[in-house]
Measured scan of single mutants.
Amino acid sequence: QEVDTIELTRQVKEKLAKNGICQRIFGEKVLGLSQGSVSDMLSRPKPWSKLTQKGREPFIRMQLWLNG
């Protein structure tokens, strides 16, 4: 299904801030990505339709983390 990447990243940033989790830790533990990649993804999320399967994976992980 289509994911609203802008809304998703907004919710993730909100939860990170609320729980005092830094992007570096979130990136390493949840997404398996560097802090730079995570920062870029959270500040400039690409539309779901423009992402490859590999590009979608971190957003799917974010969704699971939010719902977890």
Rank of each mutant, 00 (worst) to 15 (best):
K29C: 08
Q53G: 08
A17P: 09
M62I: 03
F26S: 01
M62L: 05
V12R: 09
T5V: 02
K46S: 13
R10V: 08
N67P: 01
G68D: 13
Q35D: 15
V3W: 01
I25N: 11
W48P: 00
V30R: 01
R44V: 07
Q53N: 12
M62S: 01
S49P: 05
L66K: 01
L42N: 02
K13S: 03
L51H: 00
L33V: 14
L16V: 07
N19A: 12
R56I: 01
L42S: 05
F59Y: 13
F26K: 02
L42V: 04
I6H: 13
E28K: 10
G36C: 12
L8Y: 10
Q63G: 10
Q63H: 14
K50A: 10
K29L: 01
G27F: 10
K46Y: 11
A17F: 09
G27T: 06
V12T: 07
L31R: 08
Q35W: 15
E28G: 11
R61S: 02
Q53I: 09
V12P: 13
A17D: 13
C22W: 07
W48F: 03
K50M: 13
I25S: 12
L51I: 09
F59G: 00
P58Q: 12
P58F: 13
Q63L: 02
G36T: 13
P58M: 14
S49E: 08
K18A: 11
S39V: 11
K46P: 15
G32L: 04
K13N: 09
T5L: 08
C22I: 09
L51D: 00
Q11C: 03
L33S: 06
R10T: 12
V3G: 08
V38A: 06
R10F: 04
G36M: 11
M62Q: 00
G32S: 06
S49F: 06
K18I: 10
L51W: 11
A17V: 10
D4I: 01
R24E: 15
R61Q: 09
W65N: 00
S37G: 09
P47L: 12
D40S: 09
P47T: 06
L33D: 04
R24C: 06
E14L: 08
L66V: 05
L8E: 13
K50I: 15
T52W: 14
M41A: 14
R24V: 06
V38K: 07
S37I: 11
I21W: 13
L64H: 08
K18P: 03
R10Y: 04
I21S: 02
A17H: 09
K18G: 05
P58V: 13
C22L: 10
Q53L: 11
K18H: 02
Q53Y: 04
W65S: 00
E2W: 01
K18T: 10
P58R: 11
W48G: 00
L51P: 00
G32H: 10
E2L: 03
Q23H: 09
G55L: 12
K50P: 00
W65Q: 00
I25P: 01
D40K: 03
Q53P: 14
L16F: 05
Q1A: 15
C22A: 11
S49Y: 05
E14C: 10
S49T: 09
P45W: 09
K13M: 04
K15S: 05
S39I: 14
D4F: 03
T5Y: 06
L33W: 09
Q35T: 13
V12E: 09
K50W: 05
L33Y: 05
T52R: 09
Q53E: 08
K54M: 04
Q63T: 07
D4S: 04
T9G: 11
P47C: 10
L16T: 14
S49A: 11
Q1L: 06
L51N: 00
R24M: 03
R24L: 05
G68H: 02
S43Q: 14
Q35A: 14
N67M: 07
L8P: 13
L33F: 08
I25W: 14
L64T: 13
I25D: 15
G27H: 07
L16N: 06
Q35H: 12
P45E: 01
K50S: 12
E28C: 04
F26Y: 01
Q11W: 02
L8T: 13
G20M: 05
I25M: 14
L8H: 10
F59C: 00
L64K: 15
P58G: 06
V12I: 03
G68A: 11
L42Q: 03
R56H: 01
K46Q: 12
F26R: 01
E2A: 04
G32C: 04
C22E: 07
G32I: 01
S43I: 07
F59K: 00
S34W: 11
E2D: 04
N19H: 12
R44Y: 12
P45T: 05
E14H: 02
Q63I: 06
E2N: 05
I60D: 04
T5W: 07
N67R: 12
M62D: 00
G36N: 13
V12H: 08
E28Q: 09
K54R: 11
N19C: 13
W65H: 00
E14G: 07
M41P: 04
M41S: 04
Q35L: 13
E14W: 05
C22D: 12
P47R: 08
L66N: 01
L42A: 03
Q1Y: 03
G55V: 13
M41G: 05
R56Y: 02
I6L: 07
R10D: 09
A17N: 09
R10C: 06
S37D: 15
Q63S: 06
M41I: 12
Q1M: 15
S43G: 05
D4R: 03
T5G: 03
P47H: 08
T5M: 12
V38Q: 04
S49G: 08
G36Y: 05
V12Y: 07
L16Y: 04
L31V: 05
R10L: 05
L66F: 05
R61H: 02
I21M: 10
R56A: 02
R61W: 01
N19T: 14
P45Q: 02
L66P: 00
A17W: 04
F26T: 00
T9Y: 01
D4M: 08
Q11D: 04
F59W: 09
N67D: 06
V38S: 10
G55Q: 14
R61F: 00
I60W: 03
R56K: 12
S37E: 14
T9D: 07
F59A: 00
Q23T: 10
V3S: 11
L42P: 09
S37T: 10
G55M: 12
Q35R: 14
E28S: 13
S39D: 12
S43Y: 07
E2I: 10
K13Q: 10
K46I: 07
V30D: 03
K54W: 03
K29Q: 13
M62H: 00
L31Y: 03
Q35N: 03
S34V: 08
L16P: 13
G36A: 15
R10N: 14
I60C: 08
E7I: 01
P47N: 03
D40R: 01
L31A: 04
Q1K: 15
L66G: 00
M62F: 13
R24G: 05
F26V: 01
R56W: 02
R61C: 04
K29I: 01
K54S: 11
R61G: 01
G27I: 11
R44Q: 05
F59H: 00
G20A: 08
M62W: 03
I25F: 15
V3P: 09
I6T: 12
K46L: 11
